[in-house]
Design a binder for these strands. Structure first.
Lengths: 192, 192
DNA sequence: CGCCGAGTTGAACTGAATCAAGAAACGTGG
DNA sequence: CCACGTTTCTTGATTCAGTTCAACTCGGCG
């Protein structure tokens, strides 16, 4: 499973030499957890990068006691406590599993070692970061001046099955709206 | 000026070997333009990355005839037509100079050559992309559930002098609000 | 069965948009 | 250096999308 997963990663992002792949196999681990498990809690220093083999997860933070989803990850997506991982600070985010999931886990330290040693791996990092940057840029555009309905339609065009896998309230906060508003948007769509 | 600028870049992001620096000097150019000059227009394929030596610029797009700022760049920031540059598609963005400016310009092709040849340069790319990703993530959080006043305060804490250099309407659309609302926020602050 | 979390619906409220008008600042040419 | 038009900014009145608060429905499950 580890080898297959690394294969998927290299195919999706950028190829790695056999040598580099072999070394990555040494460092990476496959782990499974149940739905509801918290991979990261607020305040922790998290130095782990997760790649979803099977299942899904979300990153969220608390604002005025409310639970705000910041990021979803499904099969073949990366997820990490972005601020903690890259800035070495306590995480403002929680990361929790929305389903029983299987993950590939690598530590920042091991990634740094691989990045130093292999130009290949550095490139994989650059390319996956670039993809994430482009996704975030799209989200900014969406949050800037689209109506909540447009943002919702956007999201389900990117993740058509998200409603079957993720609670309504989590989707709502990701879109920057309340659960009630999302429920009404959905209702008005079903009427058409 | 070229050498000094490259020096600034390596100090800000990640060091480069002398050899790599020398080759970058071959490819990069310093160019100056007047305020109002459009570096990129909507629909163009833009394969240039710009680094602001002196001056400032903004990226914007048109939505329903309205002008929406997506990105500001000041001294020592990068700016490019992000979608066109990374996805090889016609740019939805314009990029215009807000002041008379001096820029360092590199083409994507030359950057690819350097990335292939120098591990150093690949790393510089990864690190600068990571910084941009983190900035965008902060902006998403800001747009998701902060009030327009909080977003404004955020912005001026990051760029204290932005109001002296950038028209109000451009700042407003960057924050996802109208010019009128921003004017009122400012007025209410001055009253306190 | 009754509880519980997730989703829905309703009514009142509010922050920000819109529309409209005017004031201030800015640049350009006489 | 002033007069002019243009762009930028402010202020007011009205409207509207989305929030808030509260009650209710539904399906699952001990």
């Amino acid at each position: 499973m580890l080898k297959e997963t690394i294969q998927i990663i290299t195919q999706t992002f950028s190829p790695l030499s056999d040598e580099c792949k072999k070394e990555l196999e040494q460092y990476a681990q496959i782990q499974s957890f149940q739905k509801g498990h918290q991979l990261v809690k607020e305040g922790q220093f998290s130095d782990k990068l997760f790649f979803i083999v099977e299942g899904c997860a979300r990153a969220y933070y608390l604002k005025d006691g409310k639970n705000i989803t910041d990021w979803f990850a499904f099969e073949h997506d990366f997820i990490c406590a972005i601020n903690s991982f890259f800035l070495f600070i306590p995480s403002p985010h929680y990361i929790e599993l929305l389903e029983d999931s299987t993950l590939l886990v690598v530590s920042r330290e091991d990634m740094m070692t691989l990045s130093d040693k292999y130009h290949d791996f550095e490139r994989l990092g650059r390319i996956s970061t670039t993809k994430t940057m482009l996704q975030l840029q799209q989200r900014v555009v969406s949050l800037q001046f689209e109506s909540s309905q447009q943002r919702y339609l956007n999201l389900i065009s990117i993740y058509p099955h998200i409603e079957l896998r993720v609670p309504l309230g989590d989707i709502a906060s990701y879109l920057g709206i309340t659960q009630e508003t999302l429920s009404r948007i959905r209702a008005s769509r079903n009427r058409i």
